[in-house]
Design a protein around this nucleic acid. Structure first.
Length: 288
DNA sequence: CATTTATCCTGTAAGC
DNA sequence: TGCTTACAGGATAAAT
C-alpha cells in the first residue's frame, strides 16, 4: 500500500529513467486507469505523444511528470498509485504483466514505462500545472518531507478539528502522505491513541507526533519502502524491506517491542488500527 | 460549513 | 475440494 515513502522511491526511479526522454507511443489497456482524464483515453494518448518529460515530482502520495512541448512547461502527467499501482521500467518486448494498464514507449527506443494496477484504484491523467501543482493536487497539504512543511501550522490545524487524532493524520488536506501504516507507526512511537480527541492534543504531543511521522517515513524511505506482498514494488520490481521494522501495523497477537503486551487490532472506519493496549491506552473520552 | 460514510476494485486467505 | 465471505484501503462523492 503505497504511502509517501513508497511513492518517493518510485519518483526517484522515474527521475533517473524517464526524465529527458520523449514519448513516442501511448497504449491504454484499461480505460478505468485513465478515468480521471476527463477528455477520454484517446485524448490522453494523443496529447501525451511527442511530449518531453522534464522532471519527476511528488506531493504526499501524488506523483507527476512535468511535460514540455515547445519550451512551455505547463502540463503534467499526474499519477496516483492508489492501493496497488506500480510504475515499471521494462525493455520493449518484455512480456506484458497481468495487470498492465498503460504503456509508454519512447523515441530513443529504450526501456518503456508501464503502469500496472491490480485493483485499479490508481490512475493517470494529463493536468494543467498552476503555481507548480497539477490542478487535482492544489488542495493537498504539504507533506512532512517538504522543505516548506510547517509543523506548528499543522499542529494548530489538528487542534482546530473536532475529530480523532488518527482521522486527522489521514486527512490529506491537513498533512499529506500519511496512510494507515505510518499513522499507526507514528502513534505507537508517540504512545498516543488514534481516538484521542484532536482538541486535547498538547503542543508537546503534537511536536512529538509529527516528529515521529517524519522519522518513520525517513527510515522507511531508506529501507526502500514497506511491502507485504508483490503489490508494492519499485520501478525495477523490487520490494522494500521496512515491513520488518513495523512495530504496530499488522502486528496483532505479537508482543509490543517496548513492553511485551500483545498488540491489539481495533476496528476503525471499516479498516483496522493496531495499538499496544498498555503503551497507548484508550483515552477517557474517545472520539469514535 | 464540518465531518462521516459509502463506493470503487480484485486477489488472497480463512471458514464451512 | 470447492464455494462463499471477509479483508486489504486512498480519495472522493454523497450523506449527515
Amino acid at each position: 500500500m503505497p504511502e509517501l515513502p513508497e511513492v518517493e522511491v518510485v519518483r526517484l526511479g522515474l527521475a533517473e529513467h524517464v526524465t529527458g526522454r520523449r514519448v513516442a507511443a501511448v497504449e491504454v489497456r484499461h480505460p478505468r486507469s485513465v478515468r480521471r482524464h476527463r477528455a477520454g483515453e484517446l485524448d490522453f494518448a494523443a496529447r501525451l505523444r511527442g511530449r518531453w518529460i522534464r522532471a519527476a515530482r511528488r506531493r504526499g502520495k501524488y506523483l507527476w511528470l512535468d511535460l514540455d512541448s515547445d519550451g512551455a512547461a505547463d502540463e503534467a502527467l499526474l499519477a496516483h498509485l492508489g492501493m496497488s499501482g506500480q510504475m515499471r521500467i521494462q525493455p520493449p518486448g518484455a512480456a506484458d504483466e497481468t495487470h498492465l494498464r498503460v504503456r509508454l514507449q519512447f523515441h530513443d527506443g529504450g526501456p518503456e514505462l508501464r503502469f500496472i494496477d491490480q485493483r485499479t484504484f490508481g490512475g493517470l491523467s494529463l493536468e494543467n500545472v498552476v503555481k507548480g501543482l497539477p490542478t487535482p493536487v492544489a488542495h493537498i497539504a504539504r507533506d512532512p518531507l517538504d522543505p516548506c512543511f510547517d509543523r506548528d501550522a499543522v499542529i494548530a490545524g489538528i487542534r482546530r478539528r473536532r475529530t480523532g487524532l488518527k482521522r486527522a493524520l489521514l486527512d490529506q488536506t491537513l498533512v499529506s502522505g500519511i496512510g494507515n501504516i505510518y499513522a499507526d507507526e507514528a502513534l505507537w512511537r508517540t504512545r498516543l491513541h488514534g481516538s484521542q480527541p484532536t482538541e486535547t492534543l498538547t503542543t508537546t504531543q503534537g511536536c512529538t507526533l509529527l516528529s515521529a511521522v517524519t522519522e518513520v517515513m525517513t527510515e522507511a524511505l531508506a529501507a526502500g519502502g514497506t511491502s507485504f506482498d508483490a503489490l508494492y514494488v519499485n520501478i525495477n520490481g523490487a520490494s522494500g524491506y521496512f515491513d520488518r521494522s513495523l512495530a504496530a501495523y499488522g502486528q496483532a497477537g505479537r508482543p509490543c517491542r517496548r513492553c511485551g503486551t500483545v498488540i491489539r487490532r481495533e476496528s476503525f472506519m471499516n479498516r483496522s488500527s493496531y495499538t499496544c493496549p498498555r503503551c497507548q491506552p484508550c483515552p477517557r473520552h474517545p472520539h469514535p
